[in-house]
């Protein structure tokens, strides 16, 4: 099992610190949700966990090794990423894009074997994207592209998957489908560890084992959804425009707007 953790790291771009002194460790088989307002640093954390940015201070460790010392190819066999609003080269077919997930597994001049093609097809099956296989990605909708990228990360067969807003362009049906899939893969003999940045607090509360609420570049609260999504925390981080109640069926916290357009 692969462990990934952030040890008291300050993260950012250039001279600017976005996230200060955060610590975070994902347990194998866990689905962790990163929540917080726009610009709070969710994507920055995802980028540091995939070595797109190096910490200004502190460390990011994969299996106890500093992530900066792990060659990219080796890292890409352990950590897969679904980026936020990915841009795809429009001339490639969806199948070719998903097949790119197999690249870390291939040698220099090696072509995809039957085994690679089968895994690719399995990944498209799991994400209901088979019917898109020979369509060019330039013709696909935002939601379809999102699903194709999720298929690609499945084809990559990594134990850790980082997802940055994987449900942003999806309708509620597809959102549930995607999160069910990821949750299911985490549950299967602890197969997958997922770190998911989510805007939707209700989805985060219902799918994640643990939530990390980020505010102004720091961890505001961390723990089980019921402990993080409280009326107090939500008001402190998001303002007073919403209220928190307990979902009658799941018993988990849910956030709804407080409709009052007369008050400022």
């Amino acid at each position: 099992m692969i462990k990934i953790e952030i040890q008291n790291a300050t993260l950012g771009y250039g001279d600017i610190d976005v996230v200060k002194e955060v610590a975070l460790a994902a347990k194998p088989g866990e689905m962790i949700g990163l929540v917080g307002p726009n610009g709070s640093g969710k994507s920055t954390i995802i980028k540091s966990l995939s070595r797109i940015i190096t910490p200004h201070s502190g460390r990011v460790l994969v299996n106890g090794r500093d992530i900066g010392t792990i060659p990219r190819r080796e890292l890409s066999l352990m950590v897969g990423v679904v980026p936020q609003t990915p841009l795809l080269p429009s001339a490639y077919t969806a199948f070719e894009i998903v097949l790119m997930g197999r690249s870390p597994h291939l040698g220099l001049f090696q072509y995809e074997s039957k085994h690679d093609l089968e895994i690719t097809w399995w990944a498209m099956e799991r994400t209901s994207t088979q019917h898109l296989a020979d369509r060019r990605v330039g013709e696909l909708s935002g939601g379809e592209i999102q699903s194709v990228i999720i298929a690609r990360v499945l084809a990559q067969e990594t134990e850790i998957v980082l997802l940055d807003e994987p449900t942003a362009n999806l309708d509620i049906g597809r959102q549930i489908e995607v999160l069910n899939l990821i949750k299911g893969l985490c549950r299967q003999e602890n197969k997958l560890t997922a770190v998911v940045a989510l805007h939707d607090l209700n989805l985060a509360s219902h799918y994640c084992d643990r939530l990390v609420l980020i505010h102004n570049g720091q961890i505001h609260a961390e723990g089980r959804p019921a402990a993080v999504i409280t009326a107090e925390n939500i008001e402190e981080v998001y303002g007073s425009g919403s209220y928190v109640h307990t979902h009658p069926l799941s018993g988990l916290p849910a956030v709804l707007p407080r409709v009052d357009y007369t008050k400022k």
Partner: peptide, 23 residues
Amino acid sequence: MIYARSLNLIQLGEEQAQQLGIN
């Protein structure tokens, strides 16, 4: 030619190419 497959991956942009193992 050695980089033929990597040239496909870099069409995804540098970040995604890095996340798929390309230096």
